[in-house]
């Protein structure tokens, strides 16, 4: 039994690689759908797929070379004779299959496909100087005034920002699907929780058009609100926005 198995080592390795491919292609999208409770399958991204396949093939080769005996068996499959008809058949399949796969690879690389767009951007560019010194006038007031500001801010947020950023500030408003650069999910700890109050003030006042070019202002649907909202209103919105999202602004570092 052990003897027979080692004779077909190369076939086992190839079968394992094919199984890995089938798993990534067909099983894993379904598994992730269930695990992440999504309503749609989650296909493995193509580059990820490529890396996994390379890793799989390498793992197979590493396994085949764990001992000299294994390596000899592995390559031994290609030697003529000394096996059942099935071996000869598989040998033929292998000999024909290899050049065909190479040809197929070249074909899929060479046919002109539409390039997919690269849209890299920096989400948090540096704050322009004129906004650096600003401070939220309502953060220092007494608790009662602050509470009122938050309430007012929440209402303003619901009125003006909700269609995009969503009523829970989760980036899921009814218009959010229309903008490929999606409205930001403020509950995500990587967004407004990582910046200071006046940074948000700048973003609301100047919007997408106020961004520097490394942040792709041409794709940003974030409106500039400077003509429609007064500074006081913006400070209140900020308080309401943080409260709705349930996060806190980053504390300012003490200046020396």
């Amino acid at each position: 039994m052990a003897k027979k198995r080692s004779k077909f080592l190369m076939i086992w390795v190839i079968t394992a690689v094919i199984c890995l491919f089938l798993f990534l292609k067909y099983a894993s999208p379904k598994i992730f759908q269930v695990l992440m409770a999504k309503d749609h399958t989650m296909p493995t991204p193509s580059t990820l797929m490529m890396w996994y396949m390379i890793m799989g093939i390498l793992a197979g080769l590493v396994y085949a070379t764990t001992s000299n005996q294994k390596f000899a068996d592995f390559l031994g499959f290609l030697l003529p004779g000394g096996g059942p008809t099935i071996k000869i058949l598989l040998q033929k399949v292998l000999f024909i299959g290899f050049p065909v796969i190479v040809g197929w690879f070249v074909y899929s690389w060479a046919i002109p496909g539409a390039a997919s767009p690269v849209e890299l951007r920096i989400q948090h560019p540096t704050l322009p100087q004129e906004f650096e010194k600003l401070e939220n006038p309502f953060r220092q007031t007494d608790a009662e005034t602050q509470r009122k500001c938050i309430e007012e801010g929440k209402i303003l947020f619901q009125t003006y920002c909700r269609p995009c950023h969503g009523s829970k500030a989760d980036g899921n408003g009814p218009f959010s699907n229309s903008f490929r650069l999606r409205p930001i999910n403020f509950q995500d700890p990587g967004t407004i929780a990582t910046v200071v109050d006046n940074y948000v003030f700048w973003r609301i006042k100047e919007g997408g058009p106020g961004l520097p070019s490394e942040s792709t202002p041409w794709d940003s649907a974030m409106p500039s609100w400077k003509d429609d909202l007064k500074d006081d209103e913006i400070w209140k919105i900020i308080m309401g926005e943080y409260d709705t999202a349930g996060v806190m602004p980053r504390q300012r570092e003490k200046l020396e």
């Binding site: 290899f98 050049p99 065909v100 796969i101 190479v102 040809g103 690879f105 070249v106 074909y107 060479a110 046919i111 002109p112 539409a114």
Partner: peptide
């Protein structure tokens, strides 16, 4: 979309021969 140029098939043939 660029139409698939005939040369692609030559490349594929060469690749198969090399392989």
């Amino acid at each position: 979309e660029k139409p698939v140029p005939k040369t692609v098939f030559v490349y594929v043939l060469i690749a198969i021969v090399i392989g």
